[in-house]
Amino acid sequence: MTIRTGTRTAQRNELMWALLFIVPSLIGFIVFFAMPSVRGLLMSFTNWDLLRPAKFTGLANYIKLLSDKEFRHALRVTAYYVVLNIPLQTVIALGMAVMLDRFTKSTFIRGILILPWLLPNIIVALLWLWMLDPTLGFINQIIMSLGFERQPFLGSVTQAMPTIAGINIWRHAGYTAILLFAGLQNIPKDVYEAAAIDGADERQMFMGITLPLLRPVLIFVLVTSLIGSFQIFDTIVITTKGGPVDATRVVYWYIYEYAFVRFKMGYAATISVALFLILITITVIQMRYFKADTSDLD
């Protein structure tokens, strides 16, 4: 969109208004994002232990990181979570969005879908922690009444991570569905009508129209949920604290452990910077690969 400008004063006027609107969020960005980020970066070159003055240690933390087996383990565990979480969540959300778009206009149902996402993470994690409790949990009561064996869920090395992924899929699928639904609403209905006249069935319409035209929104959803997924932390704090053993010691928990259990703030910052670089790389690749800034609607 281009703006036709009348006079220079009008232009200056507009700039002033623009700045006025930008400033509040800019201040927020600088105070809460930019400054802590720079500080975090600086911290990663020190041995700060939270209580004593920091000493500059150069690249020592980064060198340590390169040979840190636990860090690599944390990355693997995180990747495992992302792989469990993202595909299933996206597919479920897409299914729900398509159904919303095609079969109902009910805002009530949309409201219900988004409800789990409106609950605070901590509450969701606590609820599931109780429901999945190996001895007293509601879910195990059902499993046992059906004649199966009790499951440890979060208490088992193999089941813990899939369980956490499940909890977060439950929480986020509805919200993701609403985002995708908004994208679906932008696809002109006449395209579908034309396809219907040509005799396309639901599946063909989905593959040939819905998916391609939804791409920019889908990419946006994928990128944000992927980043969110890498940042899995609160559910783990409540449910497993990185355990059992180290089965759910994801990168964020590892950072937290270094910062607030081992008091190695400097090294914790180093891991954060490394994670930041990894995520930026993934995002750029994703963007390039899916050409997210163009739409087939143009």
Binding site: F33, M35, P36, S37, R39, G40, A259, S272
Partner: peptide
């Protein structure tokens, strides 16, 4: 991301 690690800082 950085807000999260900055949060610690």
């Amino acid at each position: 991301l950085l807000a999260a690690c900055g949060g610690a800082a």
